[in-house]
Design a protein around this nucleic acid. Structure first.
Lengths: 335, 335
DNA sequence: CTGAAAGCGCTTACAG
DNA sequence: CTGAAAGCGCTTACAG
């Protein structure tokens, strides 16, 4: 780095104290009734010297950094990339910067990330919690650290969260299948105790039961860390015994890797198999036929999360729990 | 936030000075020859009190933050999302955290982001520069701020950069087309003076010339901010007059929006039109037929960028310019 | 209207 | 082997 110019430099050049400089540069000249001539000179000198305030020093003094930490499962997954973008823009509007990290659905990584971000004194955290991260989040709450859980949540913890109406989402999907005459509807989900996943599974199960199809219920669970290989195996099993005419995927990534398998085995959609995806992705548009899917309101999810977090940072102690509404985007992968 | 515990608290409890605490917690007990008993107690008390070092204070004192700033065009574009992920992981290995921002190919946004990140005292920056950001980057270099340009670069500026062999990449693509018998090869690129784009265009043009097809050269340029509408218009024009049998796209996003148009107009690939895409995307796999494309080594690009940046941060004054090699991924969208 | 001074939580020469 | 003290660059009560 170079010869950093500080308030002291400006103060010396103008011939006043750093206090005055600080007041003026922070727009407090009115309250502090600084002389107009001095105000002008300070601004001029600051400009001449190309003064940049040192946020680190300010943060240390103020005890806040105007930074929010974002922990997602994987920033390279477009679902989270898009959320990150919305969060970035929304945060920027209030003068906040975003520091991010990817947890890979792994609670140890998540713990490490939380630690790192806290050491960096983020003012609050938006987290898509991993399995087994309940204790970590509890610690945050005990420490009175503003937190918003996004996309998923932890049932044992009463805190701010912004999630989809997961149960209704898959319930809708199954009803849609059934309205089209499908009965042997299976589901592929992640093996996870996380509520959002369990709710999606439960939505599927309940919808099946409510339609008298309880004994057709089949949920195949795939582990996040070996998704690819397990998906291939599961799909082979499903497709081989032909006891299935419709398939519901529980996420973006599952949908896509499922579609790879469907294509590999030359399954005709929807003639041999009807399909409903989750989240949305350009691949859904290009698949033949275009995929019907459950859409999440990403924009809203990101914005709400930031809004709630900033409220908390500003001191609100109200716990806010938002459930967003899915949409079924109907295309041609059924019937 | 809560009752933050500081070194002072530990020092008081143990009955030593904060200096000792600092030494021990930073692993300097050997050099400073701190008594083994004291070392033990300090560690114990730190643990009991759940002490978390305040990185902000440390940063202020040390003059470095162990943070790198990342400015990409758009974090929600998977190309950049994947790069961000590689950078995150690579940085984390050296104890660095990443702060990011999206410039939308807009030099004013980019200037604002650079300012914000510098005020936050990032130790260095990885930037995918926008058009018109030459002055900004020059300022950084004058200020001796470690910078690596990634994906693009600015020809007027001699600095570290990691980019693709853009010229060769499109040259290869055109030669491939021609080897398959195509002659009326067109290209769709962004309207941009940035070197990476100009080089991709030049690679196309030169390859055409070198094959005696100079008068078949047609480059349609699309503006980033109105990509969608312009793409539709351009594709209609191209497809209507049928003076084209092969089409090369200059990026990821262009490829995808081009494919939307191709599908909309029911153009048969490769029978009516051969296509080569850029970068890679799951959509390329699902398009019928799977798209042949020029692949960038993302992993390498991200890792190299971080490596070079960290070297600079550690004081290296050597300028490093890396050109990575493209790969042609051959599939079924030609012939 | 303006300034001297304390302090945020660390690190690190310096002295003993 | 250990501690007192300065200082990083700000902000902000306090005093005048």
């Amino acid at each position: 780095m170079a010869k950093k110019v500080s308030m002291k430099d400006i103060a010396e050049k103008v011939g006043v104290s750093t206090a005055l400089v600080s007041y003026v540069l922070n727009g407090l000249e009115k309250e502090k009734r600084v002389g107009p001539e001095v105000v002008k000179r300070i601004h001029q000198v600051a400009k001449d010297l190309k003064y940049k305030p040192n946020q680190i020093a300010r943060s240390l003094r103020r005890g806040s950094t105007n930074t929010i930490g974002l922990i997602v499962a994987d920033i390279s997954n477009p679902f989270f990339g898009q959320l990150a973008r919305v969060i970035e823009d929304e945060a920027a509007e209030s003068g906040y910067t975003v520091v991010f990290g990817s947890s890979d659905e792994n609670s140890e990584k998540s713990a490490t990330l939380i630690d790192i971000l806290l050491n960096r004194q983020v003012d609050g955290l938006i987290i898509t919690p991993s399995e087994g991260s309940t204790e970590q989040i509890k610690m945050l709450l005990q420490g009175d650290i503003p937190v918003v859980l996004m996309d998923r949540y932890l049932p044992d913890i009463s805190t701010n969260r912004v999630v989809l109406d997961n149960f209704n989402a898959t319930y809708t999907a199954v009803n849609y299948f059934i309205s089209k005459g499908y009965k042997k509807v299976n589901m592929i989900a992640y093996k996870s105790s996380l509520v959002h996943m369990q709710e999606r599974i439960r939505g599927y199960q309940e919808a099946m039961k409510d339609n008298g199809l309880a004994n057709e219920v089949v949920v195949k669970e795939i582990s996040y860390s070996h998704a690819k290989s397990e998906m291939e195996k599961v799909m082979e099993d499903l497709l081989l015994d032909k006891k299935i005419d419709a398939l519901l995927f529980a996420t973006n990534a599952l949908s896509i890797s499922g579609l790879y398998a469907i294509r590999k085995h030359h399954i005709k959609v929807p003639e041999e198999l009807a399909v409903i995806g989750f989240d949305g992705h350009e691949v859904f548009d290009f698949f033949q036929p275009p995929l019907t899917y459950i859409q999440q309101p990403l924009e809203e999810m990101g914005k709400e999360s930031v809004k709630i977090l900033l409220d908390q940072i500003k001191g609100s102690r109200k716990k806010v729990q938002v459930e967003l509404t899915h949409r079924l985007i109907e295309r041609a992968s059924c019937l």
